[in-house]
Design a protein around this nucleic acid. Structure first.
Length: 190
DNA sequence: ATTGGGATCGTCT
DNA sequence: GACGATCCCAATA
């Protein structure tokens, strides 16, 4: 497996996001295949960076390829990858990793989550399963270290499902969410 | 110093 | 489908 380098991340978030599908998130001895992502840009009303740089979102305005972790709803952490940040792509962009399929360390993930099902199929759930917290905010994914994203040889799917983003009040018009499978898992066809 | 809101999740109906 | 949990941040004063 090859660790993704800076050049992979240093593009606009809506370009990087679908490319992250089927890549492998690694934290220590835990690994998961990325199965759901969302893009957030600088001019995007749903993005934390929309109102400019603050202490909370500062990492978003730094170099690409770093981890942006934030805490929300009093309970959950969410993990993003900073993108853009060069001449061709402005800073203040990120891709939210919303779900992974466990590959390694499933037992440990189940232990952390306290349940067998739905181990890492949501942004808060995967942070709990992988023990990602605010202390990892700003971490460089391109440097040698316990956290990184790797190419396992699988290309991104050409049949990814594209939808509006989840859980936002604004910016619902852009189709910036990509998943490996359909969002609603079966019941109620359309 | 205080206040209000949030890129969610699990439980219950 | 609805709601409560519950903490961190940012904005105000």
């Amino acid at each position: 497996m090859r660790r993704l380098g800076r050049e992979f991340y240093a593009r606009d978030a809506p370009v990087v996001a679908p490319q992250l599908l089927n890549k492998v998130l690694v934290v220590g001895n835990l690994a998961g295949r990325i199965s759901e992502v969302e893009a957030y840009t600088r001019q995007d009303p749903a993005s934390h960076s929309f109102h400019g740089r603050t202490n909370r979102n500062a990492v978003m305005f730094g170099p690409a390829g770093h981890l942006y972790v934030y805490f929300t709803y009093g309970i959950h952490h969410c993990a993003n990858v900073v993108t853009g940040g060069n001449a061709g792509a402005e800073p203040g962009q990120a891709v939210l990793i919303r779900a992974v399929e466990p590959l390694l360390g499933l037992d440990e993930m189940i232990r952390r989550r306290g349940r067998i099902r739905n181990v890492a199929d949501g942004p808060g759930k995967l942070c709990q399963a992988f023990a990602i917290g605010l202390e990892m905010n700003g971490l460089d994914l391109c440097a040698e270290g316990v956290v990184g994203i790797f190419d396992a040889g699988d290309d991104p799917p050409d049949d990814a499902v594209v939808t509006p983003r989840i859980g936002i009040r604004v910016g619902t018009d852009t189709l910036w969410r990509w998943t490996l499978s359909k969002p609603q898992s079966g019941r109620r066809g359309s």
